[in-house]
Simulated assay, not measured.
Amino acid sequence: MKIKGIDCAVPLTAEKARAMAAAGMKFVCRYLVPVSMEWKRLTRVEAEAITAAGMQVVSVFQRGNNDAAGGAANGTRDGKAALQEAKLIRQPEGTAIYFAVDYDAQPKDYAAMEAYLRAAAKELPGYSVGVYGSYAVVEEMAKRGACKHFWQTYAWSRGKLSKAANIYQYQNGQELAGHTVDYNDALGGEGWWNTKLPAVEKTVNKFDTESAEEVIAILGSVWMASDNDPGVREAAHYAANALRDAVGIPK
């Protein structure tokens, strides 16, 4: 069963997020952009609303359609901006930030595109970089090892789907819950995230009885060799009894 999701330019309210989830959506791709593009900017409040609705967040950075063709200089600029936004909304490290190549990129652009992605990655310690683009873009950037995650659009892809794709955008400009959205399938390794705190693993007592008895025997030797020092004897006695209590050995 495919995992369905959407991407959209306009922010979701809590009500809209719940409606998307009720329609079967499991993730939402939203924009990390500077405050000058506030009309489509992902905020912490929106990320929390998406999470509360039971969906995951996918982060994508995009100023213009073809910034990646500007090479390393643009990658450095956009990587720094993406990091600032990711930290502002508290996106967890270890998750992905995609950079959009939103045009029919040609082979002459590939070297600059690779330089763009690598430069962006240098500015994003702790995060994984991905690219959004056509089949050809995904295939070429995967072959070059330019980034770790791949979000393919059907646009300019001429009916092909890359085996490297982690997300596949298959339909644009649809209406869902009164919102204009694009439909996507999750294919694994998406790098998405949510605002839930990570679960804290309880400490498990793995000290077995046999090991405890060995330590208690050592404490007994300390007690015997203490030359009747009351402080040493009391400490050894206390430690031995505490260990017995911890593993359930009768006193």
Rank of each mutant, 00 (worst) to 15 (best):
A72L: 05
K80S: 10
Q91E: 07
N66E: 11
V35S: 07
S59M: 05
G24F: 07
E38W: 00
A53Y: 03
A96Y: 05
Q62T: 07
F27Y: 14
G79C: 11
A96C: 15
A69Q: 15
A86I: 09
P34E: 01
Y98H: 10
L32R: 04
A47T: 06
A68D: 11
M25Y: 13
D102N: 13
A22E: 15
A81H: 04
N65Q: 12
I50C: 02
A81V: 06
E48Y: 05
T43S: 10
T95W: 10
M37Q: 09
V28M: 01
A68C: 15
Q91A: 06
A23R: 03
D102K: 09
M25R: 13
F99D: 05
G24P: 10
R30T: 05
P92S: 10
L83G: 11
T51H: 03
P92Y: 09
D67M: 14
P34W: 01
P92D: 10
V28R: 02
A49W: 03
T43R: 00
I50A: 01
G24A: 09
G54E: 05
G64K: 07
V45K: 08
M37S: 06
A96R: 05
V33M: 02
G79T: 08
L88T: 07
G54F: 09
D78K: 04
Q84T: 12
I97G: 10
F61P: 06
I97F: 07
Q56D: 14
C29Y: 02
K87P: 00
A49F: 03
Q56T: 15
W39N: 04
L32F: 11
S59Q: 04
C29E: 11
E48S: 08
G54P: 12
R77Q: 15
N66T: 14
W39H: 07
A100Q: 04
G70Y: 14
D78I: 02
E85K: 09
K87Q: 15
G71R: 06
D67F: 14
G24C: 10
V45P: 00
D104K: 13
R30W: 03
P92N: 09
E85A: 14
R41D: 00
S59H: 04
L83Y: 07
R90V: 06
I89F: 06
M55E: 08
D78N: 13
I97W: 04
E93A: 15
Y103V: 13
C29D: 03
Q84I: 08
Q91G: 04
V35C: 00
L83V: 11
G64Q: 08
Q62L: 08
V35N: 02
Y31S: 04
D67V: 13
T51D: 03
E38H: 01
K40V: 01
I50N: 00
K80R: 12
Q62Y: 03
I97V: 15
V45W: 01
R30P: 02
A73V: 14
V45R: 04
W39C: 01
E48H: 07
R30H: 07
F99G: 08
A73G: 07
G24Q: 06
A53G: 08
M25P: 05
R41N: 00
R63D: 11
Q91W: 03
M37P: 00
A69D: 13
S36G: 02
D67Y: 14
E48L: 08
Q56L: 15
